[in-house]
Write a protein that binds this DNA or RNA. Structure first.
Lengths: 207, 207, 207, 207
DNA sequence: CATGAATGAGCGTTCATTCAT
DNA sequence: AATGAATGAACGCTCATTCAT
């Protein structure tokens, strides 16, 4: 059934995917209306269900689809040879921001999907996420170089501080991207501000 | 209309408020059922709409109500005489955890309300939150003692790092409260772990 | 829920029951439209589901309801003291025809319900019917007087012939009631024609 | 349009007819799915509607088709030279059972079609059946030999009793075929039991 | 003040039928 | 001839909101 969808010309595919992602991102799974989706996509109600038997199928397909695009591009571009945590995390944060700028709809959809709690889809999402997290995040910090840290330091806690700081910083940026002055945000400037934070932390925790 | 509600004997008021908060927290705005609320509160459908003309009114009233309780208690108990950021933030984090333990229903409701996505109420919530953030958070750190910081340091950024770290830590705790081992979490232990993080940061940023 | 329905003033109850029976009888369970039912009953869509949570509940309620009316009146009026099969069956046939004339909608509904094969309701109906048949039909012929039959005769087969003849006769009458000349059918005339059949059979099988 | 269908190679015709009869017999007119039919027949949706403009056309064509096969074979094999009603009816009953065994799909389809209630096709079917009954059944008993009956007897009524008995008997057999012990039913045994009934009636009504 | 019967727009889903290819 | 993508009306059902009592 989804195979039929994949045979469509990609323009129409995208119209449907974008309409659906937008609706789900805006209203969450349950409140999202298939009526709105087809209206926005410019197709008939019947056609949507010709491709996706159920609303849930559409939602989970979108989740897989957008996650795949994100993760594939992420892992292609991340340099895992770099073992220094500050350099590694610097890369990741900038890459993340770049990906979001490049695919804002995907990001909005995913962001919302991750906190989705409608019972109908929650379990399926959690299953998918469990794999993701064990495959993903953990792996990324497994091979970090530890010897540069001050000896007295509890490494796990330091890594947490670094991650939380970078998350806080990213969210601040994203908040600006979303709401207010998206155009004022230049890669250069973000990159520089990020460096300030990382320098702080580096000088604090490295020998 | 809501004035009528405030004239009710407070026992009935509470039955209604609790029933509604529980339902909204569990299912989100749109999926929350007024039928369930009146059933749980032991009142008739008509009566609910006698006090709150629309579901939205009830929801927004609950939001104001629970936020007010939280903020009032928060500002009553926080010691603004303490100017040391680490001591101040330590207080705040522990106070927050304490408030959540004391009013879990309010917290659950607020937590869910903040990420509410239903277009009908989203805008109203964002408006309220904007005020809150500019009135609240910022104010708290305005009068922080700056002279203990190393001179080379950009104070605003340091404050951010501290806040983000504490937020990350709190979320980690709350995650554990919600899902896994709520009983293993003793105030003592949390307090100690928090201190470890704060010591790190203090030794990094103070002279 | 159905309790609410039973509290309605009986005029409205009947409007709903009749509309529903008519629709189910005409189109069968699956094809019957709740839209048509509410239109015919002059109520809103919501109200129907206020009384009967599901279409199936409405259908099964109607089945119980109409069956009960039929069986109660049937067993009240049948004279089980009469042991002669021909007299007994004469009574029954005339009683049946009388009941159908009195409650034609109930009969049409039941007649159709009995041959209903929609999987959703088939099993429930069969369960109900199993009880009915073992309680009903069998019981009626259990205590028939056998000694008047010619000795050479297989009594079970004779009873079958009598039953089938009476069924055939009844159906012929009902066919006329339904389609063509319902007014020409007077109880007297039917009764006389029935007697002719029974006399035939009596003279054939009795000593 | 149907002419086009008749030009098809007969293998494909049969695939379509069988698929459609099976689906209609199983689910009734309205619930039968054209999707299932084309899937089972191995043709495309479009093609079905190329041959039969509407579902209804297909259904009515099937009805005519299967009825014709039955009636033609029936009248070919029935011996209208035999004027004795008991011998004639014996033939007919056994022939009927034989035909059903030979063309069970046709029979199942027809059996279901006859009690079809969907308003869309009900009227058309009734029209066809009216012709059938006046052309068919009546004709068969028109030339029955009457002189062997006891003089006091109303011949029409006797014929009815015989027909109804045989119908009752057949239905009993078919009930068994369908539900319970289809393998226990041997032609021999059925034939003998039928004879018992006919002997009864013969001895009762013949001089 | 308090009830709960009543409304009707909206939901996700199905399916015979059409039509461009 | 043959395909199957595309349509849209209809389905059973839900639920915030209204209103007569």
């Amino acid at each position: 059934m989804i195979l039929k969808f994949l045979d469509l010309d990609s323009q129409k595919q995208n119209r449907i995917l974008n309409a659906a992602m937008k609706e789900f991102a805006q209203k969450g799974y349950k409140n999202a209306s298939t009526n709105e989706i087809v209206k926005e996509a410019g197709i008939s109600k019947g056609l949507l269900f010709h491709y996706f038997a159920k609303k849930k199928d559409l939602f989970l397909y979108l989740y897989d689809y957008s996650l795949e695009i994100f993760t594939i591009e992420f892992f292609q571009r991340i340099d895992l040879v770099e073992k220094d945590i500050f350099k590694r995390i610097r890369q990741m944060a900038l890459l993340k921001i770049d990906l979001i700028k490049k695919h804002p709809e995907l990001y909005n959809f995913l962001y919302k999907a991750i906190i989705e709690d409608t019972p109908e889809v929650k379990e399926d999402l959690e299953q998918k996420n469990k794999q993701l997290l064990t495959n993903g995040y953990a792996k990324i910090f497994r091979d970090i170089e530890v010897k540069k840290f001050k000896e007295t330091i509890d490494t796990d806690k330091v890594i947490n501080i670094v991650i939380w700081t970078i998350e806080g910083f990213s969210n601040q940026i994203l908040e600006k991207i979303k709401s207010q002055y998206p155009n004022e945000l230049h890669y250069e400037k973000i990159s520089k501000e990020l460096d300030v934070y990382l320098k702080f932390l580096e000088s604090a925790f490295y020998k």
